[in-house]
């Protein structure tokens, strides 16, 4: 349960940061923060509850929905790649620099982020190449 709640941490931080920036700039704190949370909740519900895999692979080759379906499955596949790469990168960092916020922790995190984007770029290139070969 706690693990699931922790997943909402970044969204809560983002919403709080948006409200803080509005407040710091001297303007009115609008409803942007709760709208951010509401959109995240709505997207999470849509992703979790809808039978995406059934919908995505249903369109026939002559269906006008085919391209949309292919695009959606491509986005889904790439999102899963990003997730897997992020998990591996964070795991490697945790093992290499186990003492949080100590010497070398922030610097290595910066390099980890650069390495992460480089690897994601390579994975995207490979995916694009495989599509070119298959389509």
């Amino acid at each position: 349960m706690m693990r699931r709640l922790w997943r909402w941490g970044p969204i809560v931080v983002l919403a709080a940061a948006l409200a803080l920036l509005q407040w710091l700039s001297g303007g009115r704190v609008t409803g942007l923060w709760w709208q951010t949370v509401a959109v995240a909740v709505a997207v999470a519900c849509a992703v979790g509850l809808a039978p995406w895999s059934r919908w995505l692979f249903r369109p026939h080759t002559r269906s006008p929905w085919l391209e949309l379906s292919l695009f959606a499955s491509l986005v889904r596949h790439f999102a899963l790649l990003l997730q897997a790469e992020a998990r591996r990168a964070l795991l490697a960092h945790r093992l290499a620099a186990p003492l949080r916020y100590r010497s070398g922790w922030f610097d290595s995190l910066r390099w980890l982020l650069i390495a992460y984007f480089r690897r994601v770029w390579i994975r995207a290139e490979r995916m694009y190449a495989s599509l070119l070969v298959r389509l």
């Binding site: 990168a89 490697a92 960092h93 290499a96 620099a97 186990p98 003492l99 100590r102 010497s103 070398g104 922790w105 290595s108 390099w111 980890l112 650069i114 390495a115 992460y116």
Partner: peptide
């Protein structure tokens, strides 16, 4: 993932 192999190997010690 560090820019040099030397930094990759040294990181656990630096962190400690």
């Amino acid at each position: 993932f560090m820019p040099r192999l030397l930094d990759d190997v040294a990181l656990p010690l630096i962190n400690r």
